[in-house]
Design a binder for these strands. Sequence first.
RNA 1: GGGCCUAUAGCUCAGUCGGUAGAGCAACGGACUUUUAAUCCGUGGGUCGACGGUUCGAGCCCGUCUGGGCCCA
Length: 502
Amino acid sequence: MSTEPQVPAEDDLPEQLRIRREKRVNLIDRGIEPYPVSVPRTHSLAAVREKYKDLETDTATGDQASLVGRIIFKRDTGKLCFATLREGDGTEIQAMLSLDKVGQEQLDAWKSDVDLGDIVSVTGEIITSKRGELSLLANTWAMASKSLRPLPNDHKPMSEETRVRMRYVDLIVRPEARTVARLRPQVMRSLRETFTSQEFIEVETPMLQVMHGGAAARPFKTFSNAYDIDLFLRIAPELFLKRCVAGGLERVFEINRNFRNEGADSSHSPEFAMIETYQAFGDWRTIADLTRSLIQNAAKAVSGSHVVTHMNGREADLGGQWKEISLYDAISEGVGETVTALTPIAELKKYATKLGMKIDPKWVTGKLAEEIFEHVAQDKLIEPTFVMGYPVDTSPLVRAHREIPGVVEKWDLYVDGFELATGYSELVDPVIQRERLIEQAELGAKGDLEAMQLDEDFLRAMEFGMPPMGGMGMGVDRLLMALTGLGIRETILFPLVKPETD
RNA sequence: GGGCCUAUAGCUCAGUCGGUAGAGCAACGGACUUUUAAUCCGUGGGUCGACGGUUCGAGCCCGUCUGGGCCCA
């Protein structure tokens, strides 16, 4: 079965598709190339807009230009035709074709050959119209690329499914889609600049891994013919970045794709871009400072200040020092009793039941505590908030808290109610690390599909001596969400969608 | 995994009580030398997601499946 869109036999085509195909054939029959190798273009539309921005109404400049753009608006009248050309950055300029400039033959051809969505080249004089619109008054025109499909209605937004399945059309018709597409590289550049300014170096570690580790998640599995072994698409780069730090690359980061074989919804995608970074001789506090500067600099890069404006108009202030709360204090407040990492699971279950939560019997004590926290507090975590101090049994790669028993030096950063980043004082004791990973392997043997595997090579690296370090992971797509207020499928150009079926 | 909503023209959507399928934009033919979602006259365009069932008759009711969305676990 092909996943290509099926084009039915010619005579079965919907009317509008059939007519456009006939127009293409008609062009060829008249010796006109519908897809020429090149067309005249002397200026970008943006350059013309910039140069003539102060031109008064109804002015003829005498300046000649050849402009190219996609027709997004077209109005044919008897002897004077108007069309709006749009180029990639969204800049638009009007083209005007009048009988006395282009002649009857070219005017008729324009009316019959050109449709909304076609890409055309027009050559003529830069003018402003009687209504003040900056325009090119054509002497001649040429087809640059004939569109065989009608553009969607410009005045009604496309459904979300159509936008995602046909992002190219979304980009043509919706300025916000192009804005978001350009926002991502701005953020990426800002992140790399912040890292570089603090002497972090970017490394690239394997995406195909012999064993999956570094996070609790189900992996995608694949197979190497050459090595005759199963491979996993990585769920996290953590264990390789720590190998780098062991080797003396003291400050490293990686921005790249992770893959998790789990559900997809408005904040989860099976493949997603992730930042991970490790700083030798740092800890969870220094890495929190780094995280804040990464996010605040990104906000400044896209909006000019630490206050970002979401697509729905809401303003979010990401500036200043951020609030810190203790996980167990928040739980205690939520249930009205003192809860610590040492509170027995039976008591936690009692509190959870009283809150009306459904309890998964597979949850360990720490997992239950985290679930209670999310239940009582997540909705309140709108302004940026570091949630400090997580249970040890859900965090096998984190160092024990230097004061609080049963707790590790781990924070989660929440913004707009979702988890944006997580940071640790990393566990570097190879003996304790081995014990924790063996516990994970036992969970895996018992059927926990998210448990980590025992990575002997990683442990060997740690046994050579890893410096104390802080580490952090942050979802790039989620950072985009925090900066724009959009859902994850809007921040990813081509999110995974199930194939269309006929 | 469970619940609810949803699928109709190229796009966005209506469709009442089960009785010949509708609108706007888009398209096609015509008029118009300053239009900005122009206006005016005329025209065409549908396997109503798929498969079954009930019925004299199904876009509508029932079942199954597929895609999409939301909520819950």
